[in-house]
Amino acid sequence: MLKVKNLSVKYGEIQALHDINIELKKNEIVAIVGNNGAGKTSLINTITGIVQCYDGEIIFNNENITNLPTDKIVKYGIIQVPEGREIFSELTVEENLELGAYQRFKKEDKNKIFETLDEIYSLFPILKNRKNQIAGTLSGGEQQMLAIGRGLMAKPKIMLLDEPSLGLAPLIVEEVFNVIKRLREQEVSILIVEQNAYAALKNSDRAYIIETGKITMHDKSENLLNNEKIQEAFLGKRRK
């Protein structure tokens, strides 16, 4: 469904990504695991057109979408749920969700959008209770739910989640990943980039390990979870 081929990204002289090759198939949950500064966010930002790539190709359903502006990428149904919960903190919860469907307002009946809104509210009842509240007053976990809900309002085919566990308490992290796993029922393919290797590997089908801008390993998530090197590097286990 989504293929990234030989992708390289440079910020001036500094090369953030080297020759990245990844693939996301329909209805899959794929994780990209790496430490701070490994290039995870650069990868997602390049796919959604926020950052321009230097070399390589991004293919969606056989169409080349490399370096298209973000609003065009969104039209394809490729939606980013950004790191640090980039929500509209001065707008209400409901306005945040409506803006998630911004492009749908131009071509679809409003009732369909409100149907999606109801679906989001049943997925996240807390958002319904707070729909008229200013989004900046939500707790961290609620803001993450809002960011995911806003992404879903676009009826995405692919969702790219950037560090959904960032800054959340372990229990909330589990809740967020439970929601992510349920998105599969809505026929959304998911790419998660995460520092939290355990949560990401436990909740995905396949995973890539990214280190200083390069993919160093790629396997089924459960295999990686049991891999000694991974355990040592990311899961804090010592070799016997």
Partner: peptide, 17 residues
Amino acid sequence: KAMRAVANNKKAAQIVG
């Protein structure tokens, strides 16, 4: 609303398309 969204958070506005 999109205009207020851009005023509030340009990156998020870009992300929602």
